[in-house]
Every structure is written in C-alpha cells, then in structure tokens.
Design a protein around this nucleic acid. Sequence first.
DNA 1: AAAACGTGGCG
DNA 2: TCGCCAAGTTT
Length: 293
Amino acid sequence: MPAPTRTTIAPTLVAWFTENARDLPWRRPGFGAWGVLVSEFMLQQTPVNRVIPLLEAWLDRWPTPAALAAAPPGDAVRHWDNLGYPRRALWLHRAAVEITARHGGVVPRSVDDLLALTGVGDYTARAVAVFAYGDRHPVVDTNTRRVIARAITGDAHPAAAHRRDLDAMADLLPEDDGDAARFNAAAMELGAVVCTARSPRCEVCPIADVCAWRAAGYPDTADTRRKQARYEGSDRHARGAVLAVLRGAATHEASAAEVIADWPDPVQRDRAIDSLVVDGLIEAVDGRLRLPR
DNA sequence: AAAACGTGGCG
DNA sequence: TCGCCAAGTTT
C-alpha cells in the first residue's frame, strides 16, 4: 500500500468535504474576515458547539474591529462569558485596536501582518488568510495533525506540534487556491467528525483504504502529549471563580475579601486575584475589584 | 521549550 | 466518578 500523496488524498478528501461539510456560521458565503477572525479566536481550544451562540452575539454587538476597539476591554472579557481562556478576549480586543490603528479597520490579508496581531499564531494567521481571503497556505490545527499522523505517518497520535507540520501539509496541498482551501478545511473536518482522538469512525472514513495507520493494524503509538493538570482546586479554577463573580456581578464591584469569600484557600485566592490583575483581566481600584475599563 | 492558561461534555 | 479532550498562543 503506497503512502498517500498529494494526488491521492486531496481530491478524495475535498470530494468528501463537499458532500459532508457541516453547516457552520463561518462557512456561510460572505461571513467576512472579521467574523472569521473572531471565530478562530473563539475556537482556540474550545469546541464548535460552545462557540456558535457566543460568536453570533459577539458579532451582533461588535460588527467591525473598530466597534470592538472602541469598547472597554472589560466589556470584551464580560461578553466572552464562559468560553474559557478569557485572556483570548483581551487579545482579541487588542487585535481589534491594532487592526483599527494599523490597517484602517480592515482585517489584514497577509500572513505576516496577521501574525503580528496580538493572540494570532501560526494556525489563526493562516486560517484567516485561507478561509477569509482564499489564499493558498497550509493550515494546521490539532485535527489536521492527527489526520496526517494516522493517514500518512501511521501513528495513532501526532508528535508534539512543530513548525515542520506546516511543511508536511504544504506538500499535500493542491495547486489551485480554492482546492487548497477546501483541502485545508476537509482535513480539519475529517479530524473533527471522523478521525477523532478517542473513537475514530474508520467505517465511514473516505481515505480508510490508503490510511497508513489502518494498514499497519492500528498500532497504539505512544501519546507524547503532556497530561492536562487537574482543574479542580487549581489556580486556574480560582481565577475562573473570581472572574465569574466579577463578570456576573458586573454592575457592582467586590473587594478582594468578598469575591469567592468561601474559597477554601485564601492564599490561593489572593494569588489568583494578583495574577488576574497582572494579566489585565481585572483591575483593583481603591481596594475594589472590577473588569478593566 | 515546557508550563500556564478555562470550561464543560463525553466515554 | 474521573480523566481525556477541544479550530492554540504566549512567555
């Protein structure tokens, strides 16, 4: 069984994607580069179904980068709600300010300009250039990484993320811009709905017949990823609890002793508050805590 | 370059 | 119940 190549895997996946793509907001024609950028921020480490409602509310409130840039950063944190990793809200707000100042309020198109925005890395920059503007770049996320690890390399799990992954994807990319964009989306989609981390559905996989992992008998390659730290009782948990109070009770403010007053570890509580202030996610003014203005 | 960074759902 | 997992980026 030959290893899948550009000529075998891409047309098959693109054809499968054409038939099976989920109807997601950011795939609607004319969704716009701002919408795509916001969606990509929200999708960083956060499942699609949790993003959709918050994305739509966000874009109703702030239809342009300039609109968000004009709002206080605390509003961004508040309306990020419970999406998680709230510093993304701060980064997105900062990116909106940068777009307004440096790019006339238009989300930039070049990967370099996108990479220069706060909170935009290798994945997000190329996702915007490809999915919003139709340019030809490799887009590599955790799904694509897993699909390549299995179908091409024959491993159950991808190695640690590496910039070299971009080269591997670039080698598989069709020549045509549109086909390349669809292939990028198709690889992500396959990883998201078929070639999933825990229970791959090989019986419906369009490339099962050329999959190196399947051909090798599904070897259980070692998973090299680091385990996630326990959340319950962690500093992250404490930070999340503080922020949840200040988000919900946004109209009034709280003192350090009042927020999560029943938190079992006051030292940890204070450490959480201090780190949130350092990160700019909250402000302490006259001993009162609040979201930043 | 390893660790930090939220939150909720699913097996 | 509990650990894994989710369209990553930053320091």
